[in-house]
Amino acid sequence: MRPDALLHPAPQGLYCPPGDFYIDPVRPVERALITHGHADHARAGHGAVMATQRTLDIMAIRYGDEFAGSVHPARFGETTNVNGASVTFHPAGHVLGSAQIAVEKNGTRIVVSGDYKRRPDPTAEHFELAKCDVFITEATFGLPVFNHPDAATEIGKLLSSLDQFPDRTHLVGAYALGKAQRVIRLLRDSGYDRPIHIHGSLQRLCDYYRLEGIELGDLRPATLAEGAKNAGRDFAGEIVLGPPSAFNSPWVRRFSDPLIAFASGWMQVRQRAKQRGVELPLVISDHCDWNELTASIRDTGAAEVWVTHGREEGLVRWCELNQIRAKPLNIVGYEDENE
């Protein structure tokens, strides 16, 4: 069947007419398939939600148990028939529980990548390649300027900064789901075994990751002892992790002479780091860089590529240059800042 009869963009999100479901809809719908737990992909208020068990757990943590009418856990690699369309979830390697979703009918197979990453990461299931006719890829880092360095090298920068400035609180900005746990785990794998202090909003997701068997070591709340005077000194020379939004709030005032770090693929561009007032950029990304995006397009064997959220023009141009049919899918509502 024609690919755009199997899946096409609609105001609510990517829609599958034969299966009558949406993938990562941005508005409440009857039937939703969700790739992963980031807030712009996984929203509350749908009727039936199908996602991996971990994504469902994460949604329940974020939105409460009543986040959907009914939930339907999907296992990786198992094919389910939804109103006549075959649906299979494959690991995407982005964050814990993240999936690519393959949709197939009458011999046409489309893979919706969601957000994905191909590098090894002990805090997420490893990306699994899914062959397809049409590959719908994200394009968060879809420009050739993005070449993510080795994450362990970046963590090394944080550790050497701690050596160099032992009196400064190292405030590391990291998004609450995925990035924060990955940074913690990278620190542990680099041999850092001191307590790591975390902002309150990271607590529940860190607890969940541990419950799922991911070791994060000694985590402590970044709060002050009752009535402590000059308590900012408590955090001198310590690592404190928080969501970037907290850095704009009065919360940061408690730390002595803070050194602001930020773990994100955006940090590759110095001007962006400077704009955000980041002194120590850490290029640690949960997405593919340019070479990984283009390699993935080839690896899927897709004859046609649809490009969504991010720098679509860059990837579409690359496909043109490599004689692969491509078009941007203009789906509104995804925030590429959340990386």
């Binding site: 001007q271 720098r311 023009e313 860059g314 690359w318």
Partner: peptide, 11 residues
């Protein structure tokens, strides 16, 4: 691709 990149980075 160069133009798109320069546009994005700005420097």
């Amino acid at each position: 691709l160069f133009r798109l990149s320069y546009d994005y980075v700005g420097d």
